[in-house]
Every structure is written in structure tokens, then in C-alpha cells.
Amino acid sequence: MSPVLRAFLIISALLLLAPLLFPSVYYYRIGVLVLINTLSVTGMVVLLGYVGLVSLGHAGFFAIGAYATAVLPAYGIPPILTILVGAIGAALVAAFIGKPILRLKGHYLAIATLGFGMLVWMVLSKEAWLTGGPDGMVVESIDVKAPFELLGIKIKTAIAWYWICAVAVVIGIVLATNLANSPAGRAMRAVHESDVAAASLGIDVARTKLTAFIISAVYASVAGSLLALFNRYVTPDTADFLHSIEIMTMTVLGGASSVYGALIGALILTSLPQMLTVFAEYENMMFGAIMILTMVLMRQGLAPAIAQLFSRGRK
């Protein structure tokens, strides 16, 4: 079975079966948040796992998507289209800032993306005429139940959102898996091993890094648009440094080397703060400790560890 088909089947099955465990509609809401985070984290897997680059400003791209969806309908663009416009905007910004930064080593990318995220946050908080300032703004709502009613299915809004996001995640993960097994993806992994060795094989290192950076920005932006539509409200916090850290921690905990890690990391770190108040209260310390502990004790993250457990069980 090809890795792409396998990813499609596994993720589809998991997302189809998950609602069996949901005792109430509230869990669908958490499910939606998990799926939206999975989408941002999948983008980060491409960047961190495939090419080995760190971004501390991905919330900036997330916010570009979220605010595109919040702001643009007032200018006559239908909400659904704003997802696309936001993604293109995020891709252009990523290309513009990525070009100079990516020539340099990890530290510079980390700090420059950190600055980028803060800059986005700053603009969103200060330009109140456009963005509503620190209080945020209301997002025009869309009727997510309509496509289901066309098929004669009557469901609650949160449940409709779950299935829409599930489809988005399946598409996102299939595309990312496909990328990993394409020439571009192999080039990315070569660059991950060694810039110099990859270049000597004729790989355009700068271009490969830039491609991954742009792809990951698009993932974040689409996730941001979805969250804006789902919450029907956006605030500059979408661009906050801590949000970038959240995306990063989910990636690291799940395991950056595979798309399955994205789902695992997003699932654990999205649902834990919802279920355990202790976790929510000490969120900063928890995220920090998880990052350090994962890197020191289990550098590949949970996904490979779980996979190993299964393959051992089979023998």
C-alpha cells in the first residue's frame, strides 16, 4: 500500500470513528479545535520535520488567514473565497520574508519569524480602523449546515463543522504525505540531512527551503480562516507568540517527522487544557516542560514511539 493511500485510510477511519466516543455536542466543538490545530501543525511538520527549519511566527500566518476571512467580506468577497485569498496572501508574505532569512541558519529563521509574528500582532492591535484593534472583530457567519441539508441530512452546527474540518484535515494530510514521497519532498529531506550535501547533488537548497516555508504558511493560513469562521470572532491573540509556541509544541510532542504526529500532538495539547483545569492554569509551564522533556527524552516525538509499540505487538 502506498504511504499516501495508507495515510488517507488511517486518518479517515480515525476521524470517522472518533465521534463514537463523543458523549455530547460539546465534544464536537473540541474536535473542531483539534482538527484546526492539526492543520496548522501539519504545515509545521512540513517545515520542521521535512526540512528541519524552526518557525516561531506561524501564528502570524494563521492570523493572516483569520483576518482575511474577517475583514474581506466587507469589501464584497464571499467568506468562502476569503480562505483562498488569505492563503495566497500568506504565501506571498512567506515568499517575501523567507527569501532573505532562509539563506541563513536555524537561529536566524527562528528569531526572524518570531519578529514577524510580533509584527503581525502589532499591526492587528494598532490598526483599529481595519481590524477592530485589541478587541478583535466579528466575522460574517456562513451556513455550514447547507451542504448537509442538500443531501437531506439534518445536523447541529458544531457537528457540521466537525465534518467540514475533518475533510480539510484529510485533504491536508494526504497532500503533505504525497509531498513527502515526491521529488520535492525527497529534496526537502536531503536538505534536512545536510545543506551542503544536498547542494552537491544538484538540489536548489534555497528554493527547497522556501517552498516548504510557503507551504507551511498556507496550511497555517487556511487553519486560521477556518477558526475565524467557526468562532465567528477574531482577536489579535491569533497572532500571539504563545500561539506560535502552541503550534510548535504540538508538532514536537507528536513528532515532526510524520503527519500522524500532527494529529497526535494537536489532539493531546488541544484537549488537555479543555479537560484539566490544572493544565489550563499552568499552561505556559506545561508547554515549556513538554518541549524540553520531549527534546531531551524522546526527540522523535510520540508518533514513532507509538508506531514502534504497534510493530512490536505484531511480532
Partner: peptide, 9 residues
């Protein structure tokens, strides 16, 4: 990642 984790911690 470790030093960022330390910063947040």
C-alpha cells in the same frame, strides 16, 4: 526548541 521551551517555562 529546548531553549524556547525553557523561555516559556
Amino acid at each position: 526548541i529546548i531553549t524556547i521551551g525553557a523561555s516559556i517555562f
